[in-house]
Design a protein around this nucleic acid. Sequence first.
DNA 1: ACCTGAACACCGTTCAAGT
DNA 2: ACCTGAACACCGTTCAAGT
Lengths: 215, 215
Amino acid sequence: MAKAKPRIPLSPELIYQMALEQINQAGLEKFSMRSLATRLGVDPMAVYHHIPSKAALMEGIYDTIFGELLAEDQPMPDHWQDKLLELAHRFRALALRHHKLFPSLIASNHIGHNELKALDTLLGTLLEAGLDPTATVQVGDSVFALVTGFVILEISELQNTTPHTGTERLESENQTDFINTRTLLEPLTDNLFRNSFETGLQLIIDGIKVKLQKN
Amino acid sequence: MAKAKPRIPLSPELIYQMALEQINQAGLEKFSMRSLATRLGVDPMAVYHHIPSKAALMEGIYDTIFGELLAEDQPMPDHWQDKLLELAHRFRALALRHHKLFPSLIASNHIGHNELKALDTLLGTLLEAGLDPTATVQVGDSVFALVTGFVILEISELQNTTPHTGTERLESENQTDFINTRTLLEPLTDNLFRNSFETGLQLIIDGIKVKLQKN
DNA sequence: ACCTGAACACCGTTCAAGT
DNA sequence: ACCTGAACACCGTTCAAGT
């Protein structure tokens, strides 16, 4: 439990890193400016000399993890479809890696530098595909919405430790209700959202192709 | 500022209603068990005799607002495409009506009775369209993810009072960066997400049609 | 320049007590 | 049965003081 005192003096980057570690280990609920200071081996208020508020700290953390998205070793593929899939998969991997933080990131309304960079890459990819400017923005929003929605869904299940749309939840309901949900869910077992994610991406890609043919 | 004392004694339903009113007026940040009690004209701890914890209170509120989804006067249309669009539009309207609450609702991992009911209706609609069971679940997840992601995006913008993906945000960045985002966003002005939402839904509907033709 | 420590105005929740 | 009020163990943040 004892933490080594930091040889290096405090810096925003170090603080973001330590905060991230703590959230990954103990969860968001246990995370506070005070508990972070304890982990840093420092007075509760020392952090305020580097970061003005808890809100600013959170935004810094969000931007830090978004930095992982485009800083990966693998190069981006050439074709727009592959590029789109690659971006989506990286986003999903990022979200699952930081699943304790992600819901609050999504709920936050601040868009950081690195998130903007990722969005720009997405828009560029759709332009390459041949969409006109208006369509690019609208499809870009759709892709972003789909991917964001999926990771939220998936993380929500992850925390529940119940498979898919709440099978346990379902059992507490009247046996004759939710007939569709019941009959459809039972045959399926694992990797449900992974498969749905791929299906959803393909759905949008097919939709884009329909859109491209119309022009 | 003075609140009338409740003639009716406390009940979970009354508490949910008052909590919802307070959140709509003052926002989630100002909302607390203590401020709620003040509004109810009651001791801070009185609420605990009806609802065991703040977490349970929030879940109750979430379920209350989901109840609005299927309790509307208009009947559901017949054709699966119209039904899907109707459900999506109702969900969006619900989310915007309760935009101060919705991000935390999305982040919450509990699925309530009324939310499950809405999901069941969605799955039934896709079955009617002619999808097989596996496809129904996967497409259902996709629709849910898309719609959820969109309202999150839209609410996030709403709170920013900056149009779309952060135009103000963009101005604080280096002028030569984010070239795609810059050139695409400038010609567009209002109702951006509304249009993107319709485009996204059409994208998925077209994708579903492609899927149906494959069988 | 950087960190400390007391203090302020809050939280959610427990528990014994009142009616 | 239903509500109260003091108390506990926390929060984020301000500010004057230390080195």
